[in-house]
Design a protein around this nucleic acid. Structure first.
Lengths: 191, 191
DNA sequence: ACAAAAAATTAATCTAGATTAAGAAATACT
DNA sequence: AGTATTTCTTAATCTAGATTAATTTTTTGT
């Protein structure tokens, strides 16, 4: 079960086997059905998740009562609410399965313990954060630079198969507009 | 000169003195006047900068020829174009001083060398990236959730003194709207 | 296989913020 | 001190995308 995570780690770093094993031993498996919650707004985010299969999303409900999708995560991605997990503060976000999913999870105290001692796993998690930062920065640039239609087209080009996996209203929300507008865009494309 | 960076590091971690010193010795000082460039679009981002004093910004020019500010950095922040620096790719962004500034810089090869060996400095840079990630996520949430007016008000509340430091048109760009619109908002507030 | 719920579409109307263009204020330079 | 350059403001017009509301299509559960 942890083989997949092990392979992922080995793509980035090569920790001594003992370190790697003691880390993997701390991971717990969880099976989540579509629409089940891993975290609810107002609670503490107790875990960081590694997605083995399926898809997770984080979202919040805005003042008008509308769901706003902040992130998606798929196979081989780490997923959490960094703010709540790292600072041990109440979460403003929900984390929910967007498909039937299988994840590995680790608590903050266990992860901290590992990161106090393992050079290589620190390098691993630093690399992950670097990648995530790059993705976030790119997203911010896109949001500022592209029209709704361009955003959708670009996202489609980058992640053509992912677009099929989640309901359109979630994708619209993630891209920052309404499902009605997404519908309009898609219809225009057909003609 | 590196005293300030040393203090910053010690707020997060406590590396052995030798490690800390050999890191600090690799940092180079640079003095930049307002509007001077540290990185131009189309070049490689060769350094990661620690800001001792002053203010840096990163921006790009969009298709319409308009400057879009992606980030600001002030005292005691690390600043770079992560994408270009980490992946050694051509930069889509410019980095420019928004005030007369003093920075310390380190090249990728030197930083990599340090991070291959120092557990504590890995922990330090991981923590920095965690903070940055939290800030980015919060920004994405704000951008999706708040109107232009709310964005400005919120930013004003979070960073009241910073707002004074940069020209309004840069702030408007950073917040994602035009200087004309910012002017409108500010004028409305007065009444 | 059918009913109920969830998701997607369509079209009409509305609005936050962009665009354009001109003038006023503030800063910087010699 | 005076000119040139940068920055900020104001106001009129315009548009991408929101809102509302009704309808159709798809998915889910029994």
């Amino acid at each position: 079960m942890t083989e997949q995570l092990k392979n992922h780690i080995l793509k980035f770093v090569t920790p001594p086997d003992s370190e790697l094993q003691s880390f993997l031993n701390l991971m717990e498996f969880e099976d989540v059905k579509n629409k089940e919650y891993l975290l609810k707004e107002g609670r503490y985010c107790k875990y960081q998740y590694f997605i083995l299969e399926g898809c997770l999303r984080s979202f919040f409900i805005n003042k008008k009562g509308v769901e706003k999708v902040v992130n998606f995560g798929i196979e081989d991605w780490w997923f959490t609410n960094v703010d709540s997990f790292t600072n041990q503060t109440l979460s403003a976000l929900n984390i929910q399965a967007a498909e039937d999913s299988k994840v590995l999870k680790i608590s903050k105290s266990k992860l901290d313990y590992i990161l106090q001692n393992s050079l290589e796993l620190n390098r691993y998690f630093r690399s992950i954060l670097e990648k995530v930062r790059i993705a976030d920065q790119r997203r911010i640039q896109f949001m500022f630079n592209l029209s709704g239609e361009e955003l959708y087209t670009t996202f489609n080009d980058y992640y053509p198969d992912f677009v099929q996996r989640v309901p359109q209203y979630m994708l619209a929300s993630y891209l920052g507009f309404t499902p009605e507008f997404l519908s309009k865009i898609r219809n225009k494309k057909k003609q």
